[in-house]
Simulated assay, not measured.
Amino acid sequence: MSESTVVPKLVVAGADHAIEFYQKTLGAELTVRYAAPGGSVVFSELRIGNASISVKDEDGVDKAAITIGGSPIILTLNVDDPDAVATAMQEAGASVVFPVGDMPYGMRQGRVQDPFGFQWIVSRRTENLTPDEVQQRLDAGT
Results as ranks from 00 to 15, higher is better:
Ser52His: 06
Phe21Ile: 05
Ile73Arg: 01
Val42Ser: 13
Ala65Gln: 03
Gln90Lys: 12
Thr31Met: 05
Asp114Lys: 13
Glu29Ile: 06
Asp139Gly: 02
Leu77Glu: 10
Phe43Tyr: 11
Leu46Ile: 01
Arg124Asn: 14
Ala84Val: 07
Asp132Gln: 13
Ser4Met: 15
Pro115Thr: 07
Val42Tyr: 11
Asn50Ser: 12
Glu29Ser: 12
Pro8Tyr: 14
Met103Asn: 07
Val85Asn: 02
Val11Phe: 08
Pro72Trp: 10
Gly106Glu: 00
Val61Glu: 13
Pro37Thr: 03
Thr25Gln: 04
Ser54Asn: 12
Gly60Leu: 09
Gly38Arg: 11
Lys9Cys: 15
Val85Gln: 03
Pro82Asn: 05
Gln109Ser: 14
Ala35His: 02
Ile73Asn: 06
Pro99Met: 02
Gly27Gln: 04
Asp102Arg: 13
Val122Asn: 08
Ala140Met: 05
Gln113Asn: 14
Leu129Arg: 00
Leu77Met: 13
Pro99Ile: 01
Asp102Ser: 14
Asp81Thr: 12
Ala94Thr: 06
Met1Pro: 09
Ala86Lys: 05
Asp102Tyr: 09
Ser4Phe: 15
Gly39Cys: 05
Tyr22Asn: 00
Ala86His: 08
Thr126Arg: 06
Leu77Trp: 09
Met103His: 08
Leu30Thr: 08
Glu45Asn: 13
Gly69Val: 03
Gln113Cys: 12
Ser40Val: 12
Leu129Ile: 08
Val112Pro: 08
Val7Met: 14
Val6Leu: 15
Glu127Thr: 01
Gly60Ala: 10
Ser52Tyr: 07
Ile48Gln: 03
Ala84His: 13
Lys24Val: 09
Ala86Gly: 07
Gly27Thr: 02
His17Met: 15
Ser52Lys: 09
Asn50Glu: 14
Glu58Asp: 07
Ser52Glu: 11
Val6Ala: 13
Lys56Ile: 12
Phe116Asn: 01
Thr130Ile: 02
Asp102Val: 15
Leu138Ile: 02
Gly110Ser: 09
Val122Phe: 10
Gly106Arg: 00
Arg47Pro: 02
Asp62Val: 06
Leu129Phe: 03
